[in-house]
Design a protein around this nucleic acid. Sequence first.
DNA 1: AAGTGGTCTAGACCACCGA
DNA 2: CGGTGGTCTAGACCACTTA
Lengths: 253, 253
Amino acid sequence: MNKIPVLAGTTPRYLVVARSLLRDIERGKFKIGELLPTEVELCKRFGISRYTAREAVRRLTDAGMVSRRAGVGTTVKATTSPQRYTASVSDLTDLFAFNRKARLHVLDEGMVTIRGNLATVLPTAIGQQWHRVEGVRYISGRSEPIVHVSILLRPGYEAVRDRIREGGAMIYELIERLYGERIVELRQEITCIRCPKAIAATLGTKPGSPALRVLRYYFGADETLLSLAISTYPEDRFTLTTRWRLDAQAVTS
Amino acid sequence: MNKIPVLAGTTPRYLVVARSLLRDIERGKFKIGELLPTEVELCKRFGISRYTAREAVRRLTDAGMVSRRAGVGTTVKATTSPQRYTASVSDLTDLFAFNRKARLHVLDEGMVTIRGNLATVLPTAIGQQWHRVEGVRYISGRSEPIVHVSILLRPGYEAVRDRIREGGAMIYELIERLYGERIVELRQEITCIRCPKAIAATLGTKPGSPALRVLRYYFGADETLLSLAISTYPEDRFTLTTRWRLDAQAVTS
DNA sequence: AAGTGGTCTAGACCACCGA
DNA sequence: CGGTGGTCTAGACCACTTA
């Protein structure tokens, strides 16, 4: 018998068992796709109750290393506790280099057919008629705008366009509020461009001066593209900051 | 007695209890900082065993809505299951707009005293002598470099500088391998600049042409700043893409 | 039908904490 | 000290899967 003494040191028994399983997986005793010992087997092997065995395996499950299915067993999914760096924001506004009080000043709006330059950034919508809103955003205490935005909305979201004028609300917030569509994913693409003449005029910068071009694709459920926002930030008026942290996906305490 | 029938439908009892607690928190019956009923109380109130009560509260704990402490109780931390957009990468290289096979061609290296321009990006290290490595990165199939990098290493990391020449390894990987220091956090700051003359020469672009300036601060344990990489990406040679997803922090299945 | 994980009970002892 | 959550046992029935 391999019985673990009651309270080895102060380490809970389920942690002792979890570490043992972890070692076995890391050392290749159980390979990806293979089955771990069943709960009953762990009970016998370690001389523990089912509660303790389950608690041990729960650690591996929480770390994403194994998955369980009634009637089948516990399958190894990864041989190491996945190391991940993650960045998170509670509010998408935090990605925008300005706070939510930034005023949007609408310069123009209407419908636009997706072709030409727009087709290169919206290839899935070629030929469709989308709503377009163009404007600049000001933050308090600055006389010059911080960013030029061109917002494209898929057909059927007129209400969003009509409400944009009203205030500081973000476009994605309006989509969520007016249509009950939750923004499930945001794809953000950052490049550097020479500021186009038309945009430079609205920003008070020189045409051709360096500018940051940020494309933000908003997706709803089912990967549906709901909106694309094309932002142009002139040099020296912004910094986009992101903090990435290593997740402590510790399996064993 | 408020006893829940055995297997109400097919919903586990701990979920029924968890939902009830969740409703009470959302409706303000328990406010932030207040204590939830104790486990024994839940057992009595719902006519369940302690296992079921704990499993119910575990849901709230996992969602970050409550925290527990032996001897104290279960404290409410948030009244709604936190909605978060997160981006994650398993490898920091994924942030760099090039794959890990990008070769680093070292142009210059030595020590540098932190002052002047460097002091503005490294204010905590003013007056210190740091290691400096300057170079450009090439990706396969392109004759021109994709990025100019200037890497600053805190004093005491000579071995990293000396190994950089050897191959495609990333700086942060060398730090982890040679010194056992885990990169715990990365702060990334993106701005747009006019390409300085010296850098333009190494990239084959015109001085003053638009370029993306990316500062990456690498932190180890205890928030220690280990390294700063200053990257300059010329226009049209890169796109930084980040995907943000809404986490479904569902409390109740 | 036999075995898996999922749920659940009724006990128990413990370390921790506040009064 | 008494009460809290943390750990643990020895049972039990269930739904699910494979054979």
